[in-house]
Every structure is written in C-alpha cells, then in structure tokens.
C-alpha cells in the first residue's frame, strides 16, 4: 500500500500580504530616516503623510493635481490613439513601416530632457507636459500594438475569410481580443512613463500651477518634506490612474461588444 503525503500550504490573504509589504518598506524608510538623522536629506514617512494631509486642505494642491492630470491624460490618450493608428497602417503597408521606423527609433533613443528643452522653444509652457507624455508613450503603443497585430493567429483570420465574416465582426471577435493584451501592457507601462516624463517637463518648463512646479519650488526653498510629499502624491496618482484606466478600457470594450474579458 502506498501512502501519499500532501502538504497543504496556506496562501496568505492578498490584501494582508500587500499591506504587510508596504508596512515593511515604510519601516525601512523610517529606519533610514533615523540613521541619516538630517531632515534636509530625508523626511520621515510620518512627516510626509502629515504634510500630504495638510496640503490636501489647500486649493493649490487640488488645482495642481487637476492641471497636471488633465495635461498628462491628454498626452497619454493622444499617444494611444496615434500609436494605434500608426501600428495599424504600418503593419498593413510595409513602405510606411520603413518610413516611420527611424523616426520612432529616434524618439525612443533621445533623452527626455532634450525633448523638453526643444519643446520649451517650440511650445507654450502649459502644452509641454502633454506633448512630452505623448512623445514618450507613442513608440511604446506603436511597438506593442504592431506586435499584437502581427501575432494574431493567421488560422483564425483564414477561418473568418472562409465563413465570409464582415470586417466589423472580425475586428471585434478576433483582432481586438488578440491585440488587447499588448495594448493593455502598453497602457500599464505608458501610464507610469507619461507621469514621469510629464512631471519632468513641468519641472524644467516651470509650468504654473502644476505638480512639477510645486516640486521645483520645494527644491528651491529646500523643503525636503514637500518634495517627498509631492513625489508620493505622483506615485499614488499614477497607480490610481493605472487601475482606473484598465477598468475604463474593459468597460469601454464590453460596451461596444468586444468579446473579451482578459482584464
């Protein structure tokens, strides 16, 4: 007779695990703060969260968040639209692929600061963050969506040809669900990039009433706690935006009848 021993490992609750990890990192932060012991170099997590709490009662705080958010959002959405259109036409027309590829490679390789400085010459300061967010996310969306289109199962496409499915149905039932994971990846990575590049553009461009401007001012006046507070705000906004965006895309595609539920 054989005896089987099965070890059942208890899985920790996801929420508890995540909270635990965050607490550990906050503890490490606090430890570094105590070791460094110079408020000018590093603020304590408590001071930072108290400062965020204080800032949340000011108009400047919400106005800056609103303005930065709208501009970065505009840049991101434009990048998603233009990147997707570019991906569609360059996968269909090889000549256009050859034409656009060098331009997109140049954008990918150029330091973001160079673009910001050029944009300062070309554009008004309030347009810079949207432009930079657009420019940084565009190659990502283009490359990912192109990859998704290329990887769509040719056998399924042949099946739709035999059954003479209308283009709209092929798009909804085959192409969009195939490309979706690539598009979602581009969104997830792109959102973080858009925030980073957008805020950097606001700092260098000294855009009025923006998160970047607040960060710049905090640096000028050596308000380390403010720098940390605004940085934490950007991280939280980026994460919330990422989650909200994924939900919005899911809702949107279900609304137009795309048979897809990977998100």
């Amino acid at each position: 007779m054989k005896t089987f021993i099965t070890r059942v490992e208890s899985k920790p609750n996801k929420f508890v695990a995540k909270t635990g990890v965050i607490l550990v990192w906050l503890l490490i932060w606090q430890l570094v703060y105590v070791l460094v012991d110079q408020e000018l170099l590093i603020s304590s997590p408590l001071n930072v969260f108290v400062r965020i709490f204080e800032l949340s009662f000011t108009t400047v705080f919400w106005k800056s968040i609103g303005i930065s958010f709208v501009r970065i959002f505009v840049g991101l959405v434009l990048a998603l639209i233009v990147g997707t259109i570019l991906a569609i036409i360059t996968t269909k027309i090889k000549l256009l692929d050859y034409f656009f590829k060098p331009m997109l490679n140049v954008i990918k390789a150029t330091p973001v600061a160079s673009f910001i400085i050029l944009a300062l010459i070309w554009l008004k300061s309030y347009r810079i963050s949207a432009f930079i967010a657009f420019l940084m996310v565009l190659p990502m969306v283009w490359a990912n969506v192109s990859e998704g289109i290329k990887n769509t199962d040719i056998k399924l496409i042949e099946m739709t040809k035999v059954f003479k499915l209308p283009r709209s149905r092929v798009l909804k039932a085959v192409y969009i669900p195939s490309v979706m994971p690539y598009f979602v990846t581009a969104c997830n990575v792109g959102i973080g990039f858009a925030w980073k590049a957008g805020i950097a553009a606001e700092i260098i461009g000294l855009s009025k009433d923006t998160i970047g401007r607040n960060l710049y001012d905090a640096k000028i006046y050596l308000e380390t706690v403010d720098i940390f507070a605004w940085t934490v705000v950007v991280i939280i906004l980026s994460l919330l935006f990422e989650k909200g965006f994924a939900k919005a895309i899911n809702f949107l595609f279900k609304k137009v009848g795309v048979m897809y539920d990977y998100l």
Binding site: K155, L156, M159, V162, F163, K164, A173, V174, P177, M259
Partner: peptide, 30 residues
Amino acid sequence: AGLIEPDDGEIEVTEDISMVFQEDRLVPWL
C-alpha cells in the same frame, strides 16, 4: 476555399462554402 492561389490551372467555386478545418480553428476566447 480560396485561401491559397494555384500556380497553374483553373479553380472556380460558384457557391459559398462552409468548412471544418483540420485543426478546429475555434476562437479561444469565445
């Protein structure tokens, strides 16, 4: 089925066709 073209010869199909493929070709997310 018109999925590939012949190198030579004549193929004409006057009606729509229905097909069972060798590999099923079902859409995996449906």
